[in-house]
Design a binder for these strands. Structure first.
Length: 508
RNA sequence: CGGGGAGUGGCGCAGUCUGGUAGCGCACUCGGCUGGGGGCCGAGCGGUCGCAGGUUCAAAUCCUGUCUCCCCGACCA
């Protein structure tokens, strides 16, 4: 948790360049007749204001998060990207267990017939199924699908495990990979195979199921997204149009990216009795009557990494909130002179002793500028520059990644300043992202205005004014209803509550 | 599947029209100078030009076939 690594080895892979030429041309075009200026510092990544999709890909490549796998749509997650995922996993897993669910593992392969037992479910997932028809050197009598999600296998098994009202609620979760053959893949946001957590629960009645789905939505997803990832998500209910295939209610956490689109970051579904009926999940109640159970499912995936990138990243690369950052503090030895390396290691030990995750970058054969840029690309919240000049003055230069602010701090005081600074950064990032979202949001009163607002950013309109017909009109132009929520931002129990607001935007 | 484009060192590309010694940038290796924001100079390593046929004295380049990938249109955590 608070270990310290002396030698940082992650730099080499970042250093492939590639796309500089074009950017330099763009930069020159900007000022054709200007006299030769001192060269602007070259950015290793695209300008997010000019080409956001390329910026996104550049950040993933240069920060060493992931790259494409050999099969279209697949993703190789590299050490730094996986370290972020592991921290996401650990945090969510802790919250899921606190909500009372136990972890299990179910098979990757599902009989094709299972999918077909729930009509909407098949219809929703068939187009993106990977199906194994041939194995062990012969055709299979029944093809098996590679799970796109596991409601069906869970349903089949849970039916066996539930007999009495005393067996309920049954609260299960698994961490797994799933496969959905996507047409337009994008690293982390939409890959053919992705990693996620999927919870599956069985309850005695509708109320208990609804309450649990809501509890997960708040205590696991909302709290994690806001408190740990510093992403100010919008909570709400999906419209019938956007609902999960087979659910009676889907609740969502919608993030807003820096290019003003919506990104669904986690969902929690009430499945009603649809799957319980299809898989015969029944129990005997206290009165001795056989009842059909109610189920829920809920999930969050590696897409969260994409949400982090797009929710906080800036022109210099990734910015990680301290609570999720695998490395919170990077001590950069400017030059190996006057005992700077030893001083950096001592400082590293002192900081590690406060509980912060710190790394010493003593790779002084690489120029300082290169290393400073690399740590910025990786989004490490605090960088501490330490060189002969600092040592002579008995200080270190602490640089905040979120603001770029450089703080000269006396060496002895540095360790004590780290935790407060990290807390400050965590809070500032949430505040900044919240301000950004508000600035991207427009309240509107008509369908036309909603369309306009949704194309440019986020629109908010009375659900009663929009309605399913208005929703379909927006869809024709690529704008969807991301969720409907109460005026106070909480999740409505039904679509029919008065004064509901529809949040509309383009979506990833 | 409909429409557009591309396959050339690890990555990004030029060369193809008009056949004639495969080139550039980055990365990588070595040496030196540097060093407080992606440094400079020099020397190197590395490619059967997607694949298969054909034309020709000669093919990355022309012809035929074939494979693959990417982008734009319809899904999703």
């Amino acid at each position: 948790m608070c270990g310290i690594n002396w030698y940082w080895q992650g730099g080499g892979a970042l250093r492939d360049s590639g796309r500089w030429r074009h950017r330099e041309e763009v930069a020159r075009r900007g000022s054709p007749s200007a006299p030769r200026m001192p060269a602007m510092p070259k950015s290793p990544i695209a300008d997010p204001n000019e080409d956001y999709p390329r910026w996104y890909q550049d950040v993933i490549a240069k920060a060493g998060l992931a790259e494409n796998g050999p099969v279209r749509g697949t993703m190789v997650i590299r050490p730094y990207g996986y370290a972020i995922w592991e921290r996401i996993q650990a945090d969510i897993d802790r919250r899921i267990k606190a909500a009372g669910a136990d972890n299990v593992y179910f098979p990757l392969f599902i009989p094709e017939s299972y999918l077909q037992r729930e009509a909407e479910h098949v219809e929703g997932f068939s187009p993106e199924l990977a199906v194994v028809t041939h194995a062990g050197g012969k055709d299979l009598t029944e093809p098996v699908v590679v799970r796109p999600t596991s409601e069906t296998v869970f349903g089949e098994q849970m039916a066996k495990w539930v007999n009495s009202y005393r067996d309920l609620p049954l609260l299960l979760n698994q961490w797994a990979n799933v496969v959905r053959w996507e047409m337009r893949p994008r690293l982390f946001l939409r890959t053919s195979e992705f990693l996620w957590q999927e919870g599956h629960t069985v309850h005695a009645d509708a109320e208990d199921a609804a309450a649990y789905a809501l509890r997960i939505h708040h205590d696991v997803y909302r709290d994690f997204l806001v408190d740990t990832l510093a992403l100010p998500v919008l909570l709400g209910r999906k419209t019938a149009e956007e609902r999960f295939a087979g659910a009676i209610n889907t609740m969502t956490c919608e993030g807003i990216t820096r290019d003003r689109k919506a990104l669904q970051l986690a969902t929690s579904h009430e499945l009603g009795q649809n799957f319980a009926r299809a898989f015969d999940i029944t129990y005997t109640d206290e009165g001795g009557t056989v009842q059909t159970a109610w189920t829920t499912s809920w999930g969050a995936s590696t897409r969260l990494v994409g949400g982090l990138i797009m929710g906080h990243g800036d022109a210099r690369g990734l910015r990680l909130p301290p609570r999720i950052a695998p490395t919170q503090v990077a001590i950069v030895v400017v030059r190996d002179e006057d005992g700077a390396v030893d001083a950096a290691r001592q400082l590293g030990d002192a900081i590690a002793a406060t509980g912060a995750r710190v790394q010493v970058d003593a790779d002084t054969h690489t120029g300082f500028g290169r290393r400073a840029t690399d740590w910025e690309l990786k989004g490490v919240p605090l960088r501490i520059d330490l060189g002969p000049r600092d040592l002579a003055e008995g200080q270190a230069t602490v640089v905040r990644r979120d603001t770029g602010e450089k703080l000269p701090i006396p060496l002895g005081e540095v360790p004590g300043r780290i935790e407060p600074l990290l807390n400050e950064i965590q809070a500032a990032m949430l505040g900044e992202a919240t301000d950004f979202r508000e600035s991207a949001t427009t309240d509107v009163a008509s369908i036309d205005e909603a369309l306009e607002a949704g194309r440019e950013g986020v629109g908010r309109i009375d659900w009663a004014k929009l309605g399913p017909e208005g929703e379909r009109r927006l869809l024709d132009d690529g704008v969807s209803v991301r969720c409907i929520q109460r005026p106070d931002g909480t999740v409505p129990a039904t679509e029919d509550e008065p004064n509901l607001q529809a949040i509309v935007a383009r979506a990833y």
